[in-house]
Amino acid sequence: QQPPLTRLLRGLEAELGVLLMQRLPRGVRPTDAGRALLDEARIVLARAEGIADVVQRVARGEQGRLAVGFTSSAAHHPFVSTVLREFRETLPDVDIVLDEAGTGELVDALLHERLDAAFVRSAVQGTAGLLADTVLEEPMVVALPRGHAFATGSEAPLSLRRLAGEPFVLYRRPAGPGLYDAILAACMAAGFSPHVKQEAPRLPGTLSLVAAGLGVSIVPASMRRMNTEGVAYRALKDCPGLCAPLHLAMRRAMPSPALTRFRELVRQKAALQKR
């Protein structure tokens, strides 16, 4: 009766249609085809041994892919860049894909699973299938053309109602409905309806229009980091509730392990910032 190994080798030769072992008067030796099979088998076995480690790392959120979006105003807040950098340094085997777009586009990308999470200024709790963690809130400031009467001579906060006669430059509501509505509501509470003379598709474009002297705007305080030439900023007062929130939006469905790790990091960094 043939030994089991001999039967296995003959079965492989029959299946593959090639001679794997050359029979000698004393023993055997592998043919070229046999050596090729041996090399490939070693590669397969090595990969098989690593499968468990890969699966476990993905399950722990240490490996995989994470697609994160953000609005143009959120992109300029240092919190966003800080948390993305720390996540990349902590979990270098997670591939991070970034995308900048308007709130409506980001919400659509979340719903259609093109993004895993997005930093937005508008709450999305009313959107079926989505949820949002409020990360932080920052004050709003007025952006003025350099040389404007309100831009010189004082560093004191400016009362919002003093802007009643000014032309306003805002970014289009579909691109940032949360901040747009908050600005209009604050102006109405201050006793006037703002005259929106110009709208821009993105917040950086809004600042360019302000620099060109087309009007004033109200923007998140972090936008001062753009250092747009020709724009001056003043803090605001007499406008309770006027702030720029930052939310992390995601789908309600079971998140991936990598997204869970990212969400935990965002919460930790936000808690430290609020202390």
Rank of each mutant, 00 (worst) to 15 (best):
Q1R: 02
Q2A: 03
T6L: 09
T6H: 05
E13L: 10
E13V: 08
A14S: 13
L16W: 15
L20G: 08
R23D: 00
R23V: 07
P25N: 03
R26I: 00
D32M: 10
D32S: 10
L38I: 09
L38D: 14
I43Q: 15
E49F: 14
I51F: 01
R57F: 08
R57E: 11
R57L: 11
R57G: 03
R60H: 04
G61T: 08
Q63S: 15
V68A: 02
V68W: 00
T71M: 07
P78S: 03
F79Q: 02
E86R: 15
V94E: 09
V97Q: 11
D99K: 04
D99G: 01
G102M: 04
L111M: 06
E113Q: 13
R114E: 11
L115H: 08
A117M: 06
S122M: 08
A123I: 00
G126E: 05
G126H: 10
A128V: 01
G129L: 11
L130T: 10
E138I: 11
V141F: 08
R146T: 14
G147K: 02
H148D: 06
F150W: 07
A151E: 03
G153Q: 03
S154L: 05
S154K: 05
R162N: 03
L170D: 01
Y171L: 15
Y171M: 11
G176Q: 11
L179G: 07
L179T: 08
I183C: 02
A186D: 07
P194K: 00
P201C: 02
R202S: 10
P204A: 00
T206H: 12
L207G: 07
L207F: 12
A212T: 06
G213N: 11
L214D: 02
V219C: 10
P220A: 00
A221T: 08
S222E: 04
M223E: 15
R234C: 02
R234Y: 11
R234K: 13
L236Q: 01
D238M: 01
G241V: 01
L242F: 13
C243E: 07
R251E: 05
P257H: 12
R261I: 13
F262R: 06
L265N: 06
Q268K: 13
A271F: 14
L272G: 01
L272Y: 11
Q273S: 05
R275V: 04
R275S: 06
